[in-house]
Design a protein around this nucleic acid. Sequence first.
RNA 1: GCCGGGGUGGCGAAACUGGCAAACGCGGGGGACUUAAAAUCCCCUGGGCUUCGGCCCCUGCGGGUUCGACUCCCGCCCCCGGCACCA
Length: 863
Amino acid sequence: MSEREAMYDPQKIEEKWQRRWDAERANEPDLDAPERPFYNLMMYPYPSAEGLHVGNLYAFTGADLYGRYRRLRGDEVFQPIGFDAFGIHSENYALKVDTHPMELIPANIANFTRQLRRAGIMYDWSHTVDTTDPGYYRWTQWIFLRLYEAGLAEKKEAPVNWCPSCKTVLANEQVIAGECERCGTPVGTRTLSQWFFRITEYADRLLENLEWIDWSETTKTAQRNWIGRSKGALLRFPVVVSGGMEPAAGSAAVSGKAASAASDRPTASTDASAPTIDVFTTRPDTIFGASFMVLAPEHPLVERVTTEERRGAVEAYREKVAATDLVQRKKADRSKSGVDTGARARNPATGQEIPIWIADYVLMEYGTGAIMAVPAHDQRDFEFAREFDLPIPVVVAPRQAAEAADDPADVAIEAGEEAVADTGDVLLVNSGRFSGTEAEEGGRAIVEWLAGDGLAEPRVQYRLHDWCISRQRYWGPPIPIVYCDACGAVPVPDEDLPVELPYVEDFRPEEGGVSPLARVASFYETTCPECGGPARRETDVSDTFLDSGWYFLRYPSTDADDRPIDDARTETWLPVDMYIGGEEHAVLHLLYSRFITMVLHDLDYLEFEEPYDRFRKHGLLIKEGAKMSKSRGNIVVPDEYMDRYGADVFRAYLMFLGPYQEGGDFRDRGIVGVERFLTRLWDSVSQAAEEGREGFPDEAVERKLHRTIRQVTGDFEGLSYNTAIAALMEYLNEARSAGRTPTLDEVRPLVVMLAPVAPHAAEELWEELGGEEPLFASAPGGGERSRNVWPEWEEELLHADEVEIPVQVNGKVRATIRVERGADRETVREAALADENVRRHLEGAEPLKVIHVPDRLLNLVIE
RNA sequence: GCCGGGGUGGCGAAACUGGCAAACGCGGGGGACUUAAAAUCCCCUGGGCUUCGGCCCCUGCGGGUUCGACUCCCGCCCCCGGCACCA
């Protein structure tokens, strides 16, 4: 071989091996009869027009390293990729460049595909998914229908952010400081009829399963926060009927139950037909301190209870609130506002009449949309009481203060400058017969007491809302429902799926909060599947998170066109063995896909209820200390680097720059380190191949090899790629320091361990070393299957006969001595005492204590 | 505010179950090769002191436990992420 040919030329070999992997269908496992199936999944990308971002590539490369590692260990690895191409992101971009998404998306997908192949990622291109393909979204619609049948999909009114300039609904994430992120117009609130999935029904299971699934802890925590379970009680406050109030027919939120008075508690004349205000509280123990009530301005009872003279003020306030966007309203640092309705409710514990206010700090969407205000023990209520001069009775006190009082039921404590919400070592005071009880216990007793009259019950409340899947947009799968005057909402029959999204020239969002599809008569005009009469299609499309809620179920079954998932394939490959993705999807996607999986399990379509056996998040890649973003102009385009250094060097650099699960900083300078490493490795292996010597002439190198195998294997298991690469570097340095050409036995395992990181170079070197079969280029489903070529280490070869151990005097290292491995305490102690520097520090004293950690350390303690 | 994850050389980072802090790499300094540069190779590289034997200091800050602490405990500071007028 001439010297010229022996040079490391990434471009040449990368293309060669990519072609060969394709030709031999190396990345396509036998989906029907795999020996050791392993489903290695990564979060599929949104195919943007800008092309593959280095952040995407970072994520995919890390997942690919794991897949390739499993493959080399003999697993048949299924590693698919797809494209999350529906959604507002694509649609907005299409609007901006004035090109139809149906034209844009295929070009973007082609570009992504080219880049991903170039990066040498081990995808099975015969099983991809494109969410905008009718062959895919047909089944997205099918899933909607299954939820609809199960009563888990319902249409209801809900307040949403509305941008009056863009004339569209905005997600909370698209509202920045009360303004539309695109045009800067202040955003308002609108109430629209929307489709919801009742994910709240699954809140408990979604929470409970987090106990056992093997996921990154941070991700589990994020989900727990998002679900937001609170334990407390539902309490009922009867409205005091005054002359002006007309009892009206009960609405959904009105409890029809009459409040009857308990015999041991002050009673009041309450009309049997009067409504009650239900509140949720986590602190039922503080009910004696509830000095007023607050309803959300949108609360259905507001109109009914408001007195005649307050009506004008209440209406004005409600209008003002309606004009405020949800994001702005939820800011905690705003000063409190509200108005008195003039109505009164009876505190069921004290029997006192307390005023009913409305205020925008109470949200209709959480709990019952109404609260009992306990200003002494809740900061928000406190601020409100201060603002409007409402009483602040103290009903909880530190044990010491409470016990010092003559009568805990009559303690004079002034409210301080803020609410005291502690639940630690506190007792109830001024709380009737519950005074003197420990707070938590008192709360339980109070609930039990009031429950006797139907005025209280224990309750668990979730922060999680039902999942709104309606989008008044164009670029998504139409929701498969038909509205018929005679039959109402009728699901589209399965055999009529897909409801195809028509090509619409003008797909701009519509003024009136309806989808652009509402302008397309040929789309919405249809006949009722039930009665055959004229009917109108639902014109909203579904959320992209529904597309991604099940894509991983589709991959193994993409060739089944008459059913969403093939049972046998699903049983073989699912649940996913390893899922790797970004923390930004810790809640939405990962929660929604768990929900969809659970529902399909309950409906008997799946045997498992959790979709991913293991989930690991990868970190964020930043650029010289700053987040990469278009506006900063510091986006790294991978193509340039792959052109200059080759895919292998680029992959190795991305994986070396920091711990994969924590992310890292992309700096141009750092890449030369791994380039040098791969070049040196290439040269050493080429020379070894040329000389062709076998064996392990050097004990130190052999030992280092076994240590390296142990280290690298563990690192791959834990996705610690940076230290795995460092270990390979160390081994190469050791092998080269022997001052001779390495032997074949010395470099073969090195090449295998390098293969997940730099698969093209490894294949080429493996071939050069005379590997009978390529590392990856044989289809795992054909020929010799489940081939395990990963090297193994031997315990007895890990250690030398002699070890170096530090000798400490009083915990400070004073010498390093060489002793036989496994030497006992006496031997080591004597060797240590022979050392001059050690003796000097002992100053002739006999050690009081000798700490000996075999083969690790000796510590002589003299004081 | 609550819940996570962090804070280690000039820089990116290592350090297993409490046992030699700084592996690996970048950058920097010196040298070899070269007419020269690049590339490559070798040596040095946390700070301070030194009689060149060594000695002292150092993992955000302050305490503690221990023969021994980057690691465990208590109290603080700062950075990143999630949640947040959530009753």
